[in-house]
Design a protein around this nucleic acid. Structure first.
Lengths: 157, 157
DNA sequence: GTCGAATTACTCGGATATATAATGTCCGAGTCGGGCAGG
DNA sequence: CCTGCCCGACTCGGACATTATATATCCGAGTAATTCGAC
């Protein structure tokens, strides 16, 4: 999986912790994680297209959350960065070679291999959709309550 | 995910359906699915390293199943082709930038984002491990019982 | 006719190219804030 | 001193390189069957 997913999720969490009334520019987010600013910007654009963030141009512009963390699931983030298509793509090789010489009715039912992998991937997607970024935020704060203040202090520089 | 997973799984199923006492060479398997022989061979080598297939060199050589389909899970096939590492790799960017200026104790607990994605991936792996290739084979034969004979006929040419 | 050894053809296995996608960089369009001149 | 306009700087957004990975190919090492000759 692309590492952009990790970057995007962390940035969403950070935006919530900072809780600024003003948007946060890419440069600040990138500095906070030591990431290449221009490339991070690309990932953030994907989040904007997915309506997870909103962007505002011009001076004092930047990105902010489009909705609270409780309404952003891990599935949303993955779909925004990786796209909607399945990881396992059935190319129907069963119909090639030997398959080309078999009657059509053999392929009336879908590829059972595709179904099996599809079922597993569905379990993955459900697990991702069941967890919101608010859950992750809460879990982190349970152990380190002062985390938000600590971050605010650093970004205020 | 690499398409080699699809190829590998189909080849295992085919080897079971053909049920030959002799090994089946790469060239035949590749012809049966219209796949590039040399590259398919590479994937089959990975299955040998994972001890899913056994290979025998020389004339009349080729590949055969190392154990019955009921003892080969989809997880086994994925691990053999894709490797054992997780799809989501946490690179601990929380420790960079702003993180470098925070006390060590903040990182006593693992990255909660990694845990959340890890839980989802575990669900995926469990779903894969719960399905054997024998299950897939049975599902296919339930709808097309004559499938095995049909394939044997084609490969006998 | 039978046994044995050399030969030959066939197989896997890994080293070597190519294509595609992920990663990283750069520059332009747009917009807001601040400064400056005029009233 | 207040108001309006102009200029400049800062931001996102997408077009353009570069690197890593997946895909595809080729050739050599090894093995077993086969053939040929000798006994």
């Amino acid at each position: 999986m692309s590492e952009g997913v990790e970057w995007a999720a962390h940035c969403c969490l950070l935006l919530a912790w900072l809780d600024q009334d003003r948007p946060v520019p890419t440069a600040k987010l990138a500095a906070g994680f030591e990431l290449p600013p221009a490339y991070l910007n690309k990932q953030l654009q994907a989040l904007v297209r997915a309506e997870i963030l909103t962007s505002t141009p011009g001076p004092k512009g930047g990105f902010r959350l489009a909705r609270p963390l409780s309404e952003i699931t891990l599935m949303d983030v993955v779909t925004a960065i990786e796209g909607p298509e399945q990881a396992f793509r059935c190319t129907e090789i069963r119909k090639n070679g030997a398959g080309a010489a078999t009657p059509e009715r053999y392929f009336a039912i879908p590829c059972q291999l595709d179904l099996a992998f599809g079922a597993a991937e569905l379990a993955w997607r459900k697990a991702l959709a069941a967890q919101t970024l608010a859950d992750v935020q809460a879990a982190a704060e349970a152990n380190t309550p002062s985390l938000a203040d600590n971050l605010k202090g650093w970004y205020a520089r």
